[in-house]
Amino acid sequence: MDTHAVRDVAAQLGRAYETGKPIAPIIEDHPGATVTDAYRVQQEQVREWTSRGEVVKGHKVGLSSAAMQEQMGVDQPDYGHLLSGMFHLEQQPIPGDRFLQPRIEPEIAFVLGRPLSGPGVTAADAVRAVDFVLPALEIVDSRIQDWKISIVDTIADNASSGGVVLGSKPTALSAVDLRTTGCTLHRNGSVVATGAGGAVLGSPLNALVWLANTVGPLGIDLEPGHVVLPGSMTRAFPVSHGDTFVANMGELGSVTAVFDTP
């Protein structure tokens, strides 16, 4: 994709945010688009958002579990940016009309205490960089019609990012085994899924390492205070107005997302 095409696709996605109307899959009009092209579109949008006063508060790793790759029909992880306007308070009503096709995913969020810059980051480096972890619910959303996404579509669309709800109980890495940490996801009081941290690339920590080593060569550093979402422990579930989702993660505590009624 040339620069004009990159800017045009970014503008189309921007209009989808504003109008609430998804666009056709990007890959239909740009069948030769590459993953590199898609990240250029994503970066174009990030530049626009930050020019309006948004602040990058972290990153997400998407499609890092076999369940999510199978559900979305892709075969590799991706990453997106978390902007300041994406964060919502636990237990406080989330405006459902700000999303187009929202789904929810339970995750273990990393909060960094030290900078982490690839390439060459090891698991030991990642452990030293993490200040604490929190239970989290990610609201994924797509500006692509009916979630008909290829890897190019979701990357260009900021890895299908929508919003984040963080729990309020910080836990040190030394106090938990992320691989065996279990999760029970409830929707309106009923269990809809169970999962474990090991579903995320063997351990959520591996997703953090992958992220640092992937974005480092692009000149992107993970900074102290940044939140990193490593990927979902279960498949994603559709969200409707009035829904309440609770993810219980054992010793990590729980996190609740409440969506407003129309």
Rank of each mutant, 00 (worst) to 15 (best):
D8E: 15
V9D: 00
A10F: 03
A11T: 10
G14S: 14
G14M: 10
R15L: 15
A16H: 09
Y17T: 14
E18P: 03
P22Y: 12
A24Y: 06
H30T: 13
H30Y: 09
G32A: 12
T34D: 06
T36H: 12
Y39E: 14
V41G: 07
Q43V: 13
R47C: 09
E48W: 08
T50L: 04
S51P: 07
G53A: 00
E54P: 00
E54Q: 01
E54N: 01
V55R: 04
V56A: 03
V56D: 04
V56W: 01
K60S: 01
V61Y: 02
G62C: 06
L63Y: 04
S64I: 07
S65D: 11
S65C: 06
M68W: 01
M68H: 02
V74I: 06
V74D: 05
D78L: 12
L82T: 08
L82D: 05
L83R: 01
S84C: 01
G85S: 14
G85D: 13
F87N: 11
F87W: 08
F87P: 00
E90F: 00
E90H: 00
E90C: 09
Q91V: 08
Q92F: 08
P93S: 06
I94K: 09
D97R: 14
R98F: 10
F99C: 06
I104G: 04
P106Y: 06
E107G: 00
E107R: 03
I108S: 07
I108K: 05
A109C: 08
A109V: 11
A109R: 07
F110A: 13
V111K: 02
G113C: 08
P115E: 15
G118D: 12
T122E: 15
T122S: 15
A123N: 13
D131R: 11
V133S: 06
L134V: 06
A136W: 02
L137K: 04
E138D: 13
I139V: 15
I139L: 14
V140S: 03
D141Y: 04
S142C: 13
D146I: 06
D146N: 14
K148E: 15
V152A: 01
D153G: 03
A156R: 00
A159G: 10
S160E: 12
S160M: 12
G162Y: 02
V164H: 10
L166A: 11
L166T: 09
K169W: 00
A172M: 05
V176W: 02
C183G: 09
T184P: 04
L185A: 06
N188G: 13
S190M: 10
S190F: 07
A193Y: 04
G195E: 02
A199S: 03
A199P: 04
L201Q: 11
L201M: 15
G202K: 02
S203K: 07
N206F: 00
A207W: 01
W210Q: 09
G216T: 13
G216A: 12
G219L: 09
I220E: 14
P224A: 04
H226L: 10
P230V: 09
P230L: 05
S232L: 08
T234G: 12
T234S: 13
R235A: 15
F237Y: 15
P238R: 12
P238I: 11
P238G: 12
V239H: 07
G242R: 05
T244I: 14
A247P: 08
N248K: 12
N248A: 12
G250N: 10
E251I: 13
G253W: 05
V255S: 12
A257E: 10
A257R: 05
A257Y: 02
D260N: 03
T261F: 00
T261V: 14
P262E: 14
